Amino acid sequence: MAIPHLVAHRGLMETYPENTLVSLESALLSGADYIEFDVQCTADGQLVVFHDTELLRTTGIKGNLFEMSYEELKNIRAHEPERFSLAFFNQHIPLLSDVVQLLQRYPRATAFVEIKEETLEQYGTSQVMPDLLKILDIIHSQCVIISYDESAIEYTKNNSDFLTGWVLHDYDDANHVIAKRLKPDYLIANHRKIPKNTDPWPGSWHWMVYDITDPELALHYASHNIPLIETRDISSMLEHPILALNLSNNLANN
Rank of each mutant, 00 (worst) to 15 (best):
A244F: 03
Q104A: 03
E80Q: 13
S141A: 08
D98N: 14
G165D: 06
I146S: 03
L56K: 14
F37L: 13
T42A: 11
S26N: 15
D199H: 09
P94S: 06
K183N: 12
T15R: 11
L102G: 12
T15W: 10
A111R: 05
S204A: 12
I242K: 14
F66V: 01
H169E: 14
P241Q: 10
H79R: 05
E239G: 04
E154Q: 13
D233I: 01
V39H: 04
Q40D: 05
H169L: 11
I242C: 02
V167K: 11
Q104M: 14
R57I: 03
R77I: 01
G31D: 03
I188H: 09
I188K: 04
I146P: 00
T198Q: 14
P241H: 09
N159E: 06
A111T: 04
S248N: 08
A222P: 00
F162H: 06
Q122G: 01
A111C: 06
V49I: 10
V39A: 07
T125N: 13
L12H: 11
D173K: 13
L12Y: 06
V167F: 03
L133Q: 08
K157G: 02
T53V: 12
E36A: 04
A78P: 01
D233P: 00
L219W: 07
A43W: 00
V48Y: 07
E25W: 05
E117T: 15
L120K: 06
V99I: 13
T198D: 00
I153Y: 03
A179R: 05
L245M: 13
Y155M: 03
H224P: 00
H191Y: 14
Q142N: 04
P195R: 08
L103P: 05
H140E: 03
L247I: 12
V209Q: 03
A189C: 12
L187R: 02
K193L: 14
P227G: 09
L73P: 07
Q104K: 15
S23M: 04
W205L: 02
L163K: 15
D44W: 10
I3T: 14
L228T: 01
S30K: 12
T213W: 01
F50H: 12
I188T: 04
A78M: 13
L247M: 13
H224D: 01
P200C: 03
E67A: 11
L6Y: 04
M208S: 14
N190Y: 09
S248Y: 06
W166A: 05
E36V: 01
M129L: 12
I145T: 05
A8L: 04
V167C: 08
R181L: 04
E80C: 07
L238K: 05
N75H: 12
D173R: 12
D199S: 13
H79D: 15
C41V: 15
G203L: 02
G60W: 00
V22D: 11
H224W: 03
A174T: 11
R181N: 08
E230A: 15
S30E: 14
T213G: 00
V177N: 05
H224M: 10
V49D: 07
F50I: 04
A252I: 02
E216M: 08
L6G: 07
E230S: 15
K183G: 00
A87M: 09
L65A: 05
N158P: 00
I194E: 06
D52L: 06
S126V: 04
